[in-house]
Design a binder for these strands. Sequence first.
DNA 1: GTCTATAACTCGATAGAC
DNA 2: GTCTATCGAGTTATAGAC
Lengths: 211, 211
Amino acid sequence: MSTIDRRIRRKQVLRQKILDVSREILLSQGFAALTMRRVAEAIDYSAAAIYLHFQSREQIAQELCFAGLRHLYERLQSVTGKDSATRLSGYARAYLEYAQSDPETYRLIFMADPQLTKAVFTHRDSGGAAEGALGLIVTAFTELHTGSKKTGVSPMELAELFWAGLHGLASLRIACSRALTSDEFRLAQIFTAEITKIEEKSHGKAQGRKG
Amino acid sequence: MSTIDRRIRRKQVLRQKILDVSREILLSQGFAALTMRRVAEAIDYSAAAIYLHFQSREQIAQELCFAGLRHLYERLQSVTGKDSATRLSGYARAYLEYAQSDPETYRLIFMADPQLTKAVFTHRDSGGAAEGALGLIVTAFTELHTGSKKTGVSPMELAELFWAGLHGLASLRIACSRALTSDEFRLAQIFTAEITKIEEKSHGKAQGRKG
DNA sequence: GTCTATAACTCGATAGAC
DNA sequence: GTCTATCGAGTTATAGAC
């Protein structure tokens, strides 16, 4: 291994360490506490040294968003189910569980800064996690759609509505724990049942189909 | 009118002027641009003078949130309709229209700072706009409920789910205009139809944005 | 080539002169 | 009541030590 390789490797290691420390600060104290000085303190370097590895604080935030989005995508991917309806129910739970497990990152991705959110949806650096995640949901609704339950509403529209609903539940909870008095998982379950047209089990089927 | 009254009045006028200027900056440039120095510049005072009328920047933000929430409440109150289902449809439209008309204030209320969101839901200074708004929706669902369409799901739960869905649509649009490819008003219409259990009339209804 | 040290600028907020 | 001066904290750019 040449000295040049060693140098590159060390550089990468330091860069990753900056990201790790940043993630920890974000997780425990929120984005406002994620300052260059604090990160520098944690990795035992000067604040200016960070700028050799990252262009700005925003860029660090962006990478944390990308990583968070990949985590969310992985959770969704790990959801299995024979029929699309139960899979959608699993997606809902997985989505809310992710937001609950790492609210500060979720906030950073979807609530904090429009530029960051935009970056998540436009840049390719996140490994296509955003498209992939939505793709899973669209696929499920497409399957559901082949049962021809609904006409005039495309799977894409249902997928986006589904996502928006989950995001509403997750983000309201993050913004204010007291905003919703009902349990968000229960609301998500009701929502999923509605959107997939599955009657709640506690009551059998109450209404007919549509032809 | 005594000199003391005059003084109090002038003080109130200046205070309102600070709020007006702040609101304008928020509306046009976002919360980040709302700095004490900029406000001071606009009202032609020193930055320190503002602290005679407001305890902090946060307090200014809070009052802007309260005012915004009252505006939202007014829009919801102006929705009329014979049956609860059409009223709910109107609420959905009014809600999204408000968020669209003043996205920066909406962001401040529900997305920016947990402390602000919490204040909106706990403090009484907003004139009970938050409770009032939710109350309108709960009432509509209670009416709907008397038709005994749904059992096992309370009107309160439906109201919160309804609100969360609308918030999801509004906040996603604000966070990133490209997040949703479908028209949010159409999605809201689908959502409302679902949650009120009204089958879509294959395609008859219009989905225009502005009434 | 890398990092430190430092300076230039932003901000919110406060103390004290007038 | 108002301003000036200033503090502490923040981001960022750069000069120079190693």
